[in-house]
């Protein structure tokens, strides 16, 4: 019972905050108060996003110094990572020489590419690489191919079940490979941080919310400017008084005719 509360308390409070904001927006007629309620709702969405990105035992997503050095050293060899980000024309052939066998087998199923998030230009045909390692397992593995396979499979978090990775080969690089057989679509144990031993919270919600905060204040400023102009035009920012002023200007009565007729009928 205590666990159930503990692991969902964040969500519940966030929902309560959202509903307070929503209630303020719906029930209050004052335009400034409505905008403040909208702000309340907005901030509670921020809190929701940030609490979804929290990883227990993690730390802020800024590399510690030794972890950063370790990742730089072990991530990929210096002359191999360039083609991950951008591949100029000359380097293309040089790099793809390693991948020839992989491309030949590309007719087979390519199942490893669920996640294309950081995939620049589609160079990292993950499925191809995995099957390449499948074919070449047992042979003397090319260093670049092996490191590529390991990095990709770790980044994907999902290993094709028919891709055994040469343990000896990868551990000689200082990289640990993932468990042997993991079904493709099952949420099975995942390495939290494969390259180093520091866990970082998910940086992606932070990025989204960071920009959203600044954009939020800018759009709030536009709303407040509208409220100021409404006040100057009508002399009030209360919704019912605005409606009454409109009705007087148009019909000469403090409420719209269809409303009064409906009330009369009732």
């Amino acid at each position: 019972m205590w666990d159930i509360i503990l692991e969902r308390y964040n969500y519940w409070i966030v929902i309560a905050l959202m509903m307070v904001g929503l209630y303020t927006v719906i029930s209050r007629g004052n335009l400034v108060k409505t905008l403040i309620g909208l702000n309340l709702f907005q901030t509670s969405v921020f809190v929701l996003y940030i609490s979804m990105g929290k990883i227990m035992g993690g730390t802020a997503p800024i590399f510690t110094e030794e972890d950063y050095d370790k990742r730089l050293k072990e991530g990929l060899a210096d002359d191999q990572w360039t083609h991950l980000t951008f591949r100029p024309e000359g380097a293309h052939h040089e790099v793809s020489g390693h991948e020839t066998s992989g491309h030949e087998t590309s007719g087979r199923e390519t199942s490893g590419q669920e996640m294309g998030a950081a995939d620049h230009g589609g160079d990292l045909a993950t499925g191809n690489d995995l099957h390449q390692s499948d074919m070449m397992a047992g042979n003397a593995l090319d260093v670049s191919a092996s490191s590529e396979v390991t990095t990709n499979s770790i980044s994907n978090g999902i290993i094709s079940h028919d891709a055994p990775i040469d343990m000896a080969q990868s551990s000689s690089l200082g990289l640990q490979s993932v468990a042997d057989t993991i079904e493709v679509y099952q949420p099975l144990p995942r390495i939290v941080s494969p390259l180093a031993d520091v866990i970082y919270s998910n940086p992606l919600p932070h990025v989204l919310i960071l920009t959203a905060i600044v954009v939020g204040v800018a759009t709030t400023a536009v709303g407040l400017a509208l409220a100021v102009r409404i006040r100057e035009a009508y002399g009030t920012i209360e919704e019912d008084e605005l409606e009454a002023a409109d009705a007087i200007a148009e019909f000469g009565t403090p409420s719209f005719p269809h409303e009064t007729s409906a009330k009369g009928a009732a």
């Binding site: 210096d78 951008f86 230009g121």
Partner: peptide, 16 residues
């Protein structure tokens, strides 16, 4: 410089 839009790699290519 030959890259994609906002692909900063081409500003200093082949830098380690």
């Amino acid at each position: 410089l030959g890259g994609n839009f906002l692909d900063y790699y081409v500003l200093a290519p082949n830098s380690h």
